[in-house]
Each structure stands twice: as structure tokens, then as C-alpha cells.
Design a protein around this nucleic acid. Structure first.
Lengths: 216, 216, 216, 216
DNA sequence: GATGAATGAGTCTTCATTCAT
DNA sequence: GATGAATGAAGACTCATTCAT
């Protein structure tokens, strides 16, 4: 356990520095001086710099994935929109809590290692696939209009990434409000017009009965 | 060889390599061996590696900016949606034509130099501001529903970035179709529901009379 | 090896090479191959080549300055001439002991760096000022004849530099004798004629009662 | 002659730059841009950078040597001291007229090339030998006291070099006065005391009948 | 386990010189 | 003769990683 604590300590410091300076501008010297360990000690806990970075990256990817639940449909499942909202909220919350970590994912992680680049791309592709599946499901359930769900899935992913990135740069005043806006934008973008009509009459789209999104 | 021709030649080769390997993995040796020039010759035309990279980056940013025209409103202006579509098409066309260059922007350009990072962020912020202004205008014109236009602007920006990035990874079979999908998604996301209703009846949303987006 | 020992080792080797080849002709490769250390090790102890050189230079200047004591006057102070002789001897001894180091100062240190050039000039100016002050004091004490003491101070400085440089090129057979000659030359050059007359009678100028020179 | 004019022009510009920046800090680019000639043209007139520098150096050495005349003794020769004074004046005048050139010799010319270093050392040695011969002659003529004339010769050389160097840094207000001081210092340093006695009585040493110095 | 001195491959950059036009 | 584009050897410096203590 001692070992794990040490590792965690180093990871914590490294995380902060990577977030601030990016992978390339961060050197092992930065990390060990912050973590107050000797050079050799670093290599006792991590194979190399990339390994450490990869671990942090893995951490974000895992945590994010864990926060994006597959949409459940069924009698006793919550309202789909509610599920989407919950997903989005969990993601946003995590980003705000672990801003440094997500910064690493969003801003500093590209173009220095084939494997890692592929890993990140792959992660996003998986998320996009989740979204697409939800959209297809929505179409089946007659909630979502006919469309190229793959393209739309990437649109939605991109929208979320961008907003979340913005959030990570400078937190919004009202996060809940922001979540609603994004959700609303996405839902309207994909919903069958008839539903929106109904919504218009009931006066509130976002909480309307119908919806879809992502999930593991 | 004349100065400009030589410069262009080096830029062309460098572009390809940067696109494939990213800034950090590319070294001057790669560039000069591809361009078949001597080491010193490189420094005859560019101050250093960063300088060359910056020039390429500037090129994409400038070209992209030139392709995104500010929305014109007025009696003899084309249909706003048509303008949006044209913007999007120009961007997509450019990305497909200069895939290597845009690759540099989208995938390999972050985290190695404070100035350049800032320059890119700034570019995107300017695009987002354009979009936001269009949205605000749309609200005024009673085409766009009330919303947090700043947040939505970043959603739209993100959606486009992501789709374009996807495109740059692997060109879509039917680009026009893709443009329509993205446009449709965005418009529906922001349109006042009444308009969509009308659209539904006329059977075609995307070409409907009303819309807005970005501009220089 | 301990830090200081290693540093000293590198300095020792570098000193020899700088003395032989001069600053510009010496490259880091020369130094590390002589010191039998790796490239990186060099930069562990010195910021760069100039830094190392500067340290050596500082060393000579400091050591020399420490060997040139300000002239003391007073009841229980030694004979002024004796003090001058002691100064000169200490300088000469140092030069002979650390021929390589002084070689650096005398022969190989000019024209490659503004700062260092200035530092050396400044050192000599300080020495000249010391000499001048001694001369002024001598005039006050009626030992030294009226003259442009600034000019004469530089004459004396130059004379000593040249002889010391000669010494560093090829040690004299009899150093003590050399010191006497220089001292004698200088003293006669500045002494009031009356004193020399007296000396002539007593048969020995150099050890005559009266004199002065330099000091810290 | 056209050719010679061109050469001279380049030499003139190079001289100025070498004087200001020293050999190493001066690059061919500096020279050609000042001289407004093309890179290749430079090598039409000079074999290489060192060659050009060497030519300038040769120029100073030659000019200086030409200004230091061997002491003539004989019935119709001028007073020896007058000859010394004339030598010194010519040197000082040259230094002041060609400050840039002498700067090169005094400050910027050492430690970058074995041959040139040797050439300079050799020049000074020759001057020292001249002085020594004059001193020996003076002893023979019973004007100069017994001493280690080699050592004294270097003292005198050094004194002159230093004062001249000082002069080249910042011209003295009254050059004639300065020459007298140096001359006076040197003469007193080497003269037989009896002569100074006589001088004391006649009230003016420097112009006294007896003296000696250098020559080709 | 911990340390930190040592390593050396990897890169960038400069600049005197050449040579085709 | 003049030009200036091209050359490439030479050299400085960085930094992830190793290893003896």
C-alpha cells in the first residue's frame, strides 16, 4: 500500500504539470522536483515518462466511460432524456472536478505518440458509436427523425467535446443551465418534428417525455 | 531555383510530413531529406522548424477564415441557409483538398508551443464568436429560438470540427449529403419550433426559407 | 565521485586545454574526452562552455587580486619597497605555479564575448587604479616625482603584464633576479632623482629605504 | 587598378568591423553586407576570412615597424632622445589615425589561429629585440645603467603597448604630454643615475642630451 | 527501496566556402 | 567578373533513461 500511495502522489503531481504544460513541455525533471523524489525513484514506479502519461490518460478515459451509461429502455427505466441529462451531468461534473486530467485529454495529448493518439481516437470512436446506437434506437422508437446517424453522432460528440473543453478552460457560471442548453440543442437537432410540436405546446422541450443518447 | 519556388517546395514537403508525423516527431532531417535540400538550405528559407510550422498553420487558419463568410441579410442577399451551406461546403471542400494541412490543424498542433496554442484557440474563439453573432441575429429576426447563444455557438463549432476531422481521417462517400446532415442538425437545434413545423409540411427543412449562421 | 571533486576534475582538464588552444579552438568534445566524461555530464556541472571558461577566468582574476596587497604605510609597516617586491613575487610565483590559468588570461581570452572582455578590462583598470593611488601616495610622501600618475600607472601595469607574459611563455632562469630588475626599472622610473642619488652612493637602489606601489 | 580599389574598399569595411567585433564575432555576412558585395565576390578578392584578416594584421605590423626607426648614432645624427621621441610619436600618431587597425592588433587578434598568434608574438619579440639592442648600445655609450636588458626591453615594450592600448580605447587630451611622460618614465628607468643628477640640475630630464631606444 | 550522478543518442543551428548561372 | 543559392561539416545543448552505491 505504501507503494500505491507513492505512485498516487507522483501521479497527482504529474497530472497537474501535464495539464499545465502539455506532454512535451513537461520533463521528468519537472515531475520529480514537484513530487520531491529522486530521478531513479521515478523509474521505480513508472517504466518511463510515456507510461506515466498513458496511465493518466487511461484514467480519464476510464472515468469518463464509466460516467456515460448506456441508455436503458423498458417499463421501469427512467425517462430517456433524464438518462441523457444524467450522463451529461456526470461528464461535466467530472470535468470540473478533475479539470487537470481532462485538460490532458482535451488539449495536450496529440501528435507525440502513435499508440496514444490511436487510443484517444478509439475512445472517441467508441463514444460516437454509443451515441449512434442510441440514435438508431431512437429512430426505431419513432423519437428520432431519419438521418445519417453516424454523422449526427459525431456532431453530438463534437458539440459536447467543445463545450466541455470550454468549460475546462473557464468554468461556466451555471453548469446546470449549460447542460440543459446542450441537451436541448442536441435533442432538437435529432428529434422528430412532431415531438417538438408537442413540446412547444407543453411549453418545455428539454424535459419532454422522449429521448435517447448514449450508454456503455 | 527561385526563392519563392524553393520555399514553396520545402513547404509542400514539410506539410506532408507534419501531417503524417506531427510537429514533434518531425525533425529537420526528415524535411530536408524529403525536400532533397541541404541542411543549411533549410535555414536559408526558414528561421527554424517552428517558423516553418507556424507558416503552415497560418496558412490553414487564413484559408479557413477566408472560406467562412459573414452572413449577409438584405433584400438581394441569398437565402441565409444557402449562405450557411455555402460556407460549410467551402470549408469541407478545402479540408478535402488540403487534407494534410487541415490535419496539422486538427490533430498535430497542440501542446508544443504556447504562442501557437494560443493562436489556434484564438482562431476557434473567433469562429465561435461569428457563429454566436449569427445566432443573435437569427433571434432578432425571429428565426432562432431563445437560447444561450454562446454555448450553442460552441456546440455548433464543435460539431463541425468533429465532422470535418472525421472527414479528414476518411473522406465520406457523399460529401454533399454529409454537409446537408450537419446543416440540418444545426438548424433544427436552433430553429424556432414553428419554423420546423412549417418545414415539416413543406417536406424539406434544410432548404427552408429561413436561416443564419456564420460570417467573417 | 563527489560533486566538487568532479567539477574540479573537469575544470582542471579544461584549464589545460583552454591554455593550449584558446577559447574558440577548444570545443566541448575536447574537454569531455580529456576529462573522460560524457557529454551530458559536462552540462551537469556547467551551464555551457562559456560558463566554464568564465569560472576559470574568475579564478585567475581573484587569485591575482588576492596576491596584490594594498600598500601599508605607518610606523610598523614593512618598508614600502619590500611590500612592492612581495606583491610582485606573489604574482610571479602564481603565474609560474598556474601557468595554464594565467595563459588563459594573458593570451586566449579576448574578443569572443563582450561581457568577458569587459570583465578583464575592468580588472586591469582596477589594478591600474591601485598603482596610481600608490603613486599619488608616494608623491605626497615626497618619494615619487611629480608626473601624470595615471599614465605612469598604465606603464607600470603594462611592464609587469609583458614580463609576466614572457615568463608564462618560458620561465626565466632566475625569477628573483627578474623581479628585482622589474622593480628597479619601475622605481627608478618614478622616484624623485634625489633619492636615486642617495641610492647611488649607498650602492643599492632596490632595497633603498623608500617606496611604494600597489595594493588591494 | 579597378581590382585594387575593390579590394581596398572591402578591406576598409572589414577593418572597421573586425575592430568593433573582433575576429570571431565578425562573419563574412557582416563584411559583405557592409561592403555591398555579393558573397561570391568576397572570395574573388580574398582566399578566405582568415586571409583577409591576416592582410589587415600584416598592414598594422608593417606600418608600425615602419614607424619605429633604428637608433642612429654618429656625429650628424639627431640627439638619441629626440629619435626615441620621434619613434614614439609616430607610433602614437599612427594608432590614433588608424585606431581601428591597431584595435585589431591590441584587442581582437589572439587565440584563433596558431599562425597569426605566432606572427604577432614574433612581431613583438622583434620590437623587444630592437629595444634591447638600443639598451645594450646605451650601456656601451655609458648612458644606460647595467641591467638585464632583455627583461627591461620587455618592460618598455609592455609599458608602451599598455599606454597605446589605453589611447586606442579613449584618446588622451594631450598626446604630446603623454608621449613625454612615457618617454620620461622609460628613460629614468634605464638611465645611469649620474645622468639624472645632471638633469636635475639642468631642470629638464626628458630633453637631456643623452639617449637611446629602438630601430628597425 | 531510494538515490542522483552519469550517460549519449538525438536535434537544432551556424557559417565559411563553393559553384552554376 | 559578379552573383547568391546551395552546401554540409562542425558544434552546442537537452533530456529520457540507466546503474552503481
Amino acid at each position: 500500500m505504501e507503494r500505491q500511495a507513492r505512485r498516487a502522489q507522483v501521479l497527482r503531481h504529474a497530472k497537474r504539470i501535464f495539464a499545465r504544460k502539455g506532454y512535451h513541455r513537461t520533463n521528468v525533471a519537472d515531475i520529480i522536483s514537484r513530487a520531491r523524489i529522486a530521478r531513479g525513484t521515478f523509474y521505480l514506479y513508472f517504466q518511463n515518462k510515456k507510461d506515466l502519461f498513458e496511465e493518466l490518460l487511461e484514467q480519464v478515459l476510464t472515468e469518463l466511460a464509466a460516467r456515460i451509461l448506456r441508455l436503458r429502455v423498458g417499463a421501469d427505466s427512467p425517462d430517456p432524456v433524464e438518462q441523457l441529462r444524467a450522463n451529461l451531468r456526470r461528464v461535466v461534473t467530472y470535468v470540473l472536478d478533475e479539470r487537470e486530467l481532462t485538460d490532458i485529454l482535451l488539449n495536450h495529448s496529440t501528435g507525440f505518440d502513435r499508440d496514444l493518439d490511436a487510443k484517444i481516437l478509439n475512445f472517441y470512436d467508441r463514444i460516437a458509436a454509443l451515441i449512434q446506437r442510441s440514435l438508431d434506437l431512437g429512430i426505431e422508437m419513432q423519437l428520432v427523425r431519419q438521418s445519417d446517424t453516424r454523422a449526427i453522432a459525431y456532431c453530438i460528440l463534437g458539440a459536447i467535446k467543445e463545450v466541455v473543453g470550454l468549460l475546462s478552460r473557464s468554468a461556466a457560471a451555471d453548469t446546470d443551465k449549460l447542460v440543459e442548453e446542450v441537451l436541448d440543442f442536441g435533442l432538437r437537432g435529432v428529434a422528430r418534428p412532431e415531438l417538438l410540436e408537442a413540446v412547444k405546446q407543453s411549453g418545455d422541450c428539454a424535459t419532454s417525455s422522449a429521448f435517447l443518447f448514449a450508454a456503455k
